[in-house]
Every structure is written in structure tokens, then in C-alpha cells.
Simulated assay, not measured.
Amino acid sequence: MTADPAPAPLARHLAGRLDDAEAPVLVLSHGITDSAACWIEAIEHWAPRHRIVALDARGHGDSPRWDNADLKNQETAGRRLAADLSDALEDLRSHGLRTSPEEPSVGPLRAPLLLVGHSMGGVTSLDVAYHRPDLVDGVVAEDPAFVTPTWRALLRANAFRQVAGMKGIAKDPEARFTAETTENPTWSHREVRASVEASCGVDLRFIGLGCVSPPTPWEEVVDGLAVPALIITGTDGVVLRGDHYLNLLSRRNPLISTSVIVDAPHCVRRTFPERFHAVSDPWMEMIIARGRRAGRAA
């Protein structure tokens, strides 16, 4: 019996100090319905000192659409989210920065590598770091989508509303752009434009599952994480609010740092970029310096 072909790899967008083999690497994973293009302001901010790999999640941006086998339920889709990121990291570590696995290898990547993710991308980054600590040196997660079993059920039951919302955006993207920029005056117009375009092209079959994370319980991920992580959240309708945030703090993993940016919503960085970077950047530099001192086996 012939095995099913492996799913096609995610699209990668490279930026920053690509000619500097010693420059640390940031691998960016966006939230649901966004794309790699939605990181444009952060990419320009980090590019002078880092090499950057911005990924389009499956069914988003330039990445392949979803295979039916992975869309059976939330668990199979969530496992594919994690596998996609793990596969990309394995290729980067083994063959260096290249836009596609079909390109010639440029040799193993030994520079420090940090994952940076928002929402779905944040929790997926933490999940992969938990299961594959050999691939990463640290994680920055912006209001990661830590959901409980009850939340998963509610997301599944209400996914049709998000599908309808995406269809509505596709019918009138300019109205969505105007609404977003009016309601969120500090948001970069370039990122809002990219977000609207990504919403118009997202794979609605995935959206219809209500899947926002890999299936591993977030408590297991937080308790077992063996690489440093910084979790940044806000106070205005964020995922990590109230008792949920206190539950995170109670896990007491010494490798996890947290920061709350007052008045920030779920899109912390897009709303308060200066405050986000004031927290994230010094922490990242500390982890990068630690990674350089530790080095990687030849």
C-alpha cells in the first residue's frame, strides 16, 4: 500500500542580516487568519540585528491549503500546526536559511534561534519548544491561545460565525480596513492592509473547525517547557486574563517570564509597539547572549 505523500511545506519569507552567518534567527508565527506579511513593522524593527524567517501557517498567505486528512477534527488540525513548525525548524537547523527545502543546503544553522508567535502562532511555538527543545533557544509568545476543553468546544460550535466573518471581509475588504484603522488608531496601516488581505484568502475549511492550537493541554506545555519563554499579554479582552492568567502564574516554571501591558488588547504589539519591544527586546538579547555562550555542538 502506497503511503500518502507528506504535506507540502510552509511558505517562508526571509529578511534581515541574511549574509551574516552569526546573526541570531527569529522564526515568526502569526495568529489565525493573519499571514507572515502582518509582521512587517516588527520585521523592519528586528531586521538590523537578526535574520528573520516569517512563516505563513498552512491555509494562510502563500502556504499550501489544508489536506483533507488533517481536517478531520480539531486534534488532527492542531497536530498539523505543530508538525508544520517542527518540520520548518528541523530543515532550518539542518540546512540553514533558505526559502524552500528544494533549494541547496547552506549548511547547519548553529546561531541562536528564537520563536516569536502571536495567539495561534504563540501557543504553537510554545508547544513545539516543549516537544522539541533541541531546536530552539527561547520563545516569545504574545497572548498565546491557551484554551481549555470547554473553550475548544465553544470555538467549534461558533466557528461558522468566523467563517461568515471572513466571507464578509472578502466581499468588502475596504470596509474592514476602514473599521480596523478607525477602531485601532495606533495600528500600522500596512499591517492592517496585510491582515485584511490574509483574511480574504484564508482556507475557510480550517477556520470552520474552530482550531487555534495543538491538542497538548497548555498546562502540560507550561509545566514541562525546558527552554526560556516570555509570555506577553494585556488587560483588554485578552486570552490570558483574570483567573486564566493567575493559573498560568501558579504553574511556577522558573524558565517562564510574564509581562502584562496595561490597556493592551489581544494584538499587544500592534496596539503598543514601543511598549511591546521595551519588554521583548531586552529579554531576547539576554537569551541570545546566553545561547552564544552555551554554543551548539559541532
Rank of each mutant, 00 (worst) to 15 (best):
N247E: 15
V25Y: 03
V53A: 09
T99I: 14
A170S: 08
T124N: 06
G16Q: 09
A229Y: 03
L204M: 05
I32E: 03
L115S: 02
A88V: 14
R132N: 04
N158V: 00
L115Y: 04
G210W: 00
L225K: 05
W66T: 05
G210N: 02
V238Y: 04
C267L: 15
M1A: 12
A8H: 10
R176Y: 11
W46Q: 02
L155Y: 13
D172I: 06
V196G: 04
E180S: 12
A83V: 08
T235H: 13
A264S: 11
W218F: 10
A264P: 14
E75M: 02
K72I: 13
S195I: 01
T233Q: 04
L85Q: 07
V196W: 05
V27P: 03
H131I: 03
N247W: 05
K171V: 09
Y245Q: 12
D223R: 14
T33S: 09
R269Y: 11
V238F: 10
I207F: 09
N73S: 03
A77I: 02
H95G: 03
P149H: 09
R58D: 06
D223T: 14
L14E: 09
T182W: 08
F276K: 08
S29V: 15
D137S: 02
D34M: 11
V227K: 06
W218R: 01
E41R: 15
V196M: 06
L114W: 07
E197Y: 08
A57Q: 13
R270W: 13
T178W: 07
R110Y: 00
T2I: 15
D223F: 13
I43F: 02
E41F: 07
R17G: 01
A278T: 11
A153Y: 07
V116W: 09
I288N: 07
H30W: 07
L18Q: 05
